[in-house]
């Protein structure tokens, strides 16, 4: 269930470097507003994702993305009336070419950010994140590790309670059933006498919802009290074995390697060139008040090439890994 728990890598990069790199990518994705920059961004990210092997998740991502992007593309021209190039749909009702272009560019950026995150989830495993976390917040990362262990336990307990509930509902264990049901339903006798709930109870739709909620609640409640009782033993056992008596060590460890340094230098150089370009207005096509964009305006300048070089290292590493294996 957990993503990327096992990673075979010949070209391992320090997780902190990864996090920095992805953070810069996201910042760039929401600053840049140039069709050429965004399109090449999208293509390179798609290449990276296909190398990382994500195609099954792409479907789910599109499910999330498509309705939102359609809404943005439709609503933006209806509300936004800035822009010089007007398209009249009716006599007094117009939309502007600029507003449509803005909607499309925005949803493109949205798609890029979503793709960057799915790529990030492939590159950095949760153990690596916890490794960085545990340096500053040891107790919190301890809690996270523990709850990651408790989740499958609770899952199996819910399964057992569900089975028992199913057996009881089908009339097996009839004698015990009557006694236990009375006890379990104590919680709804307390509230049935208020006016507010009488009103709700009269509606049939609400009744079915409440019935459903009661079943879920029953299963959940039994599981919760069971888990809470059991975890007390965990706490006692931790105490007995001397938790806190000396400092905990991490089970993963990373050193900064030469690859990391080269990577960092590359990021630093290309990002500073890109930032210089952004200050001068490259990569930011101005949409309002008038979008004057021609396909022939190829951005053949150093800033664009720096941007492309900035996006390449991970693709290079992925390809090199493949070459080494085959």
């Amino acid at each position: 269930m957990l993503k990327g728990t096992i990673k075979m890598e010949l070209t391992r990069i320090h997780p902190a470097v990864y996090i920095l790199y992805y953070f810069i990518m996201i910042v760039l994705a929401f600053i840049l507003r140039d069709p050429y920059f965004l399109l090449s961004f999208l293509i390179l990210i798609l290449v990276l994702i296909s190398l990382q092997g994500i195609s099954s998740e792409l479907k789910q991502i599109m499910k999330l993305f498509l309705p939102l992007s359609i809404l943005i593309i439709i609503i933006n021209p209806l509300i936004q009336k800035k822009g010089v190039h007007r398209i009249y749909l009716m006599k007094n009702f117009f939309i502007t070419y600029e507003a449509i272009a803005f909607g499309i560019l925005t949803s493109l950026a949205l798609l890029i950010v979503i793709l960057i995150f799915s790529s990030y989830n492939k590159s950095v495993t949760y153990q690596e994140m916890l490794y960085i976390f545990s340096k500053k917040l040891p107790i919190i990362s301890m809690i996270i590790v523990m709850s990651l262990r408790f989740i499958p336990l609770i899952n199996s307990r819910v399964g057992e309670v569900k089975k028992l509930n199913h057996l009881k509902a089908n009339g097996i264990e009839t004698k015990l059933d009557n006694n236990n049901q009375d006890k379990l339903e104590e919680f709804d006798t307390n509230i049935s006498d208020t006016k507010f709930l009488k009103k709700i109870n009269s509606s049939k739709k609400f009744q079915s919802i409440i019935k459903e909620a009661k079943i879920i609640g029953k299963i959940m409640g039994i599981t919760v009290s069971w888990s809470l009782e059991e975890s007390m033993f965990t706490a006692k056992s931790m105490k007995a074995r001397g938790y806190k008596s000396y400092k905990r060590t991490s089970y993963l460890s990373y050193d900064i390697s030469l690859t990391d340094i080269i990577f960092l230098v590359l990021i630093f150089i290309t990002v500073s060139i890109i930032v210089l370009g952004i200050i001068q207005g490259y990569g930011l096509t101005d949409i309002y008040p008038s979008l004057d964009f021609a396909l022939s305006d190829l951005p053949l300048n150093i800033y664009y090439f720096a941007f492309i070089i900035f996006l390449l290292p991970l693709i290079y590493l992925e390809i090199r890994e493949r070459m080494l294996w085959h």
């Binding site: 107790i139 301890m142 809690i143 996270i144 523990m146 709850s147 990651l148 408790f150 989740i151 336990l153 609770i154 599981t223 919760v224 888990s227 809470l228 975890s231 007390m232 965990t234 706490a235 931790m238 105490k239 938790y243 806190k244």
Partner: peptide
Amino acid sequence: VESIVLIAVLTAIAT
């Protein structure tokens, strides 16, 4: 220790 375990369990339950 009890507080740590308690928060971990409650987080796991909510998740």
